[in-house]
């Protein structure tokens, strides 16, 4: 294997990592603050992709509008879900929460089919990103770099939100001690709604970002959420840095794994998860459960 191959292969893996990170960040944020495993995270991502693609197709190619509007729509949907469903079951067991979010997967999946039909959608990469760039003498899609950049921007923005704003301080407070937060006068229900909407927004953003490089169809909700879930677990549930590192690991494992053992492609994610959890039972950056 030549150094060029390794470079190209790892860049492909990094683009995948970008998308996985954007999904895992939302999952881990919601788990960290709300202690809810949101199975329906993939559904939010799917809605983002469908809404985004529809906007682009209806406005004859306005990707930027989609990039703003679709995540907002998803955030609103997230807010609705938080207020009408999750808020009522925070005090329940994890399993009941899982049952609720699982039922949301079924509901949203069929609603998307009801609204958009079975037809898959496809939008083109925006013109300015449609070029290829030369890396090590090989053309690479410029859009991959765009995805990586967007993931980095998202990471920085979330970091700034957590560590440079009052809202972020409250969220961190919620992660470490939600009861304390109520005592010091923070409106905890509103905070939780905000957190869930931020998670939904990022999921919707990931959906729009991924849309130009793939087909938007039924089934992408479950397909992707399992991998994002694995990333979150490997990094450690609730850990933001963990989601970042986990995404990079999974991206690279997939990229190089298929070169050596193509037939095991299905298992890479779970093998990585089993190995990491076998070595570190709480994930790389996770903490023992309270």
């Amino acid at each position: 294997m030549t150094p060029e191959t390794i470079l190209v292969q790892s860049l492909g893996g990094l683009a995948r990592a970008g998308v996985l990170f954007m999904l895992a960040a939302g999952l881990t944020l919601v788990f960290g603050a709300l202690r809810v495993i949101n199975f329906a995270h993939g559904s939010l991502y799917m809605v983002g992709a469908f809404v985004g693609a529809t906007i682009v197709l209806r406005t004859s190619g306005n990707f930027w509008l989609a990039l703003i509007a679709a995540p907002l729509v998803v955030a609103l949907l997230g807010g609705l879900i938080e207020v009408s469903v999750l808020r009522r079951i925070y005090r329940r067991e994890h399993l009941i929460q899982l049952l609720a979010t699982y039922s949301l997967v079924l509901i949203v999946g069929d609603l998307v089919r009801l609204i958009w039909g079975a037809q898959y959608l496809s939008i083109s990469v925006p013109n300015i990103f449609a070029e290829s760039v030369q890396v090590a003498g090989q053309p690479l899609p410029l859009y991959n770099l765009v995805i990586i950049t967007f993931a980095c921007v998202t990471a920085v923005a979330l970091w700034a939100l957590f560590y440079r704003t009052g809202l972020g301080r409250d969220i961190r407070g919620a992660v470490s001690d939600p009861e304390m937060l109520g005592l010091v006068g923070v409106n905890v229900p509103a905070l939780f709604t905000a957190v869930f909407m931020i998670g939904a927004f990022v999921a919707g953003l990931a959906g729009v970002i991924i849309a130009p490089s793939t087909s938007v169809g039924l089934g992408i909700d479950v397909e992707t959420v399992v991998e994002a879930f694995a990333v979150t677990v490997i990094g450690g549930l609730g850990s933001f840095v963990g989601a970042l590192i986990g995404a990079v690991i999974i991206g690279q494992v997939e990229a190089f794994g298929i070169m050596w053992v193509p037939r095991a492609a299905l298992a890479f994610v779970f093998l990585a998860m089993a190995i990491v959890l076998g070595l570190r039972p709480y994930g790389l950056f996770g903490e023992p459960e309270r």
Binding site: I96, S103, L106, D110, R113, L114
Partner: peptide
């Protein structure tokens, strides 16, 4: 669309009769 109906029933169960 049975998944929609099943999902709605499960959601009701989770919310009202955990």
């Amino acid at each position: 669309y049975s998944a929609l109906a099943l999902g709605a029933l499960l959601l009701m169960l989770a919310l009202v009769f955990p």
